[in-house]
Amino acid sequence: MDNKTRAFIYAFLSRCFEKELDIKALEDLKKSVQLLELIGEDTRRWFESESLDKIVEEANVDYNTVFMINSQPVETLVLDSKAEILVGLQNPVMQFYFDHGYEVNMNQTHILAPDHLSIEMGFMQNLAFRNENRAAYNFLHKHLLEWVPPYMIGIKNLTQTPLYRDLTDFTVDYLLSDYEMLKTEFGHES
C-alpha cells in the first residue's frame, strides 16, 4: 500500500475517534461504498438501509456512550493502572512526537491528552505523508499495538451501531496489516 493511501486511512481513523461524526462526514461516508465495504459489511448495509438522520443520531449516541461516558481512547489511561494522563515530555508518546519533529499544540484542540487515539492516528498520518516509515513502524511497535487492540476488543461489546462495531475490528486489522507491511522493511531492526 502506498503512503498516500496509508495517510488517507489514518486521517479517516483520526477523525472517527476525535469526536462525533457530523452530518457532512456521515453523508460523505454514505456516498463512499468502497470505504463502507472496507470498514465492514454490516456498516455498508446499515448505511444503505437507514436514513441519514437516523444514522447521525444513532452514531452520535454510540460515539458518546462508548468514547466519552464508558471509556476514553487514551494510551496512558489504558496502560497505566493509576488512570492518570501524563502531560509534557513525561508522557512517552509526547517524547516520541518530539523526537520525530511532530508538534502537538494542545491549545488548538479540544482533546486534552497527547496520547489520545485521534492524535496518535494523526501522527501516523503525518509520518505517512512524510514517508517516515521507520518511525511509523517504531510507533506502531512501541505504542499503538501495545494498547489499541486490547482496547478495541474491550469496547466492542459497548458499541450499538454497525459503524463503531465494525470500526473496532477494522482499526485492529488495519494497524496489524500496516505493521506487517512495515515489518518486512524494518522488522530486523527492532
Results as ranks from 00 to 15, higher is better:
K4Q: 08
T5M: 14
T5N: 11
R6G: 13
I9N: 00
A11T: 12
F12G: 10
F12S: 06
R15V: 12
R15Y: 03
F17A: 12
F17M: 13
K24P: 03
K24Y: 00
L26N: 04
S32G: 00
S32R: 07
Q34M: 01
R44N: 15
R45N: 03
R45L: 07
S49W: 00
E50N: 11
D53A: 13
E57D: 14
V61P: 08
V61S: 11
D62Q: 13
T65F: 13
F67Q: 02
M68C: 02
L77M: 14
L77P: 12
L77S: 12
V78L: 06
L79P: 04
S81M: 05
I85Q: 14
L86G: 14
V87Y: 15
L89D: 06
M94N: 05
Q95G: 03
F96Y: 09
F98A: 01
G101Q: 15
Y102L: 08
E103A: 13
M106I: 15
N107R: 14
T109M: 10
I111T: 07
L112P: 02
D115R: 12
H116Y: 07
L117R: 15
I119T: 08
E120P: 09
G122K: 09
M124T: 07
Q125N: 01
N126M: 15
A128K: 08
A128E: 12
F129Q: 10
R130K: 10
E132D: 14
A135E: 01
A136C: 01
F139C: 07
K142Y: 07
H143L: 02
L145Y: 02
E146Y: 12
E146I: 15
W147Y: 06
P149M: 00
M152V: 03
G154F: 00
I155M: 02
N157P: 11
T159K: 03
T161K: 11
Y164S: 07
D166E: 09
T168Q: 08
D169M: 09
T171Q: 04
V172L: 12
V172Q: 13
Y174N: 00
S177P: 08
S177M: 15
D178P: 05
Y179H: 07
M181W: 10
T184Y: 12
F186I: 15
H188F: 09
